[in-house]
C-alpha cells in the first residue's frame, strides 16, 4: 500500500442562501407594511435592527423577503408607528 496516493480529504461547507430550505414555509402569520404609516426615515430602522434573520430591507419603501421570513412578528411588535401588522396565513394570497 506504500505506493497508494494519499490525499487530504476535507469536508468544508460552502455558503449559500436557503440552507434549511425556504424558511418562509414555517410561517403561520405574514407581516404587512403600511408604507403610509412607516416614517420612511433611516433614523428609525428598528424593524431592520431587530429582525433576527435579517430579511427586512434597509432601503425605503421597506421590503420584507417573504421567501425566508419565519413570521416571528418582532418587527410588528417593535414598530413605534404600528406600521407593520401580522395577518394569519402563509402568503399574501392566503390573506387577501
Amino acid at each position: 500500500m506504500a505506493d497508494k496516493i494519499r490525499e487530504t480529504i476535507s469536508a468544508a461547507s460552502k455558503p449559500a442562501p436557503g440552507e434549511a430550505g425556504r424558511t418562509g414555509d414555517w410561517r403561520s402569520q405574514t407581516p404587512f407594511i403600511d408604507h403610509d404609516k412607516c416614517s420612511q426615515k433611516d433614523t428609525c430602522l428598528l424593524c431592520w435592527l431587530y429582525c433576527p434573520d435579517g430579511v427586512v430591507g434597509r432601503d425605503f419603501p421597506l421590503e420584507i423577503d417573504l421567501e425566508y421570513c419565519k413570521g416571528c412578528g418582532i418587527c410588528a411588535e417593535e414598530c413605534p408607528r404600528e406600521a407593520i401588522t401580522m395577518a394569519e396565513g402563509k402568503t399574501r394570497d392566503d390573506v387577501a
Partner: peptide, 10 residues
Amino acid sequence: ILPGTRSCAA
C-alpha cells in the same frame, strides 16, 4: 448570514 437558516423563529 444568508437568509434561510435552521435557527428557530425569533
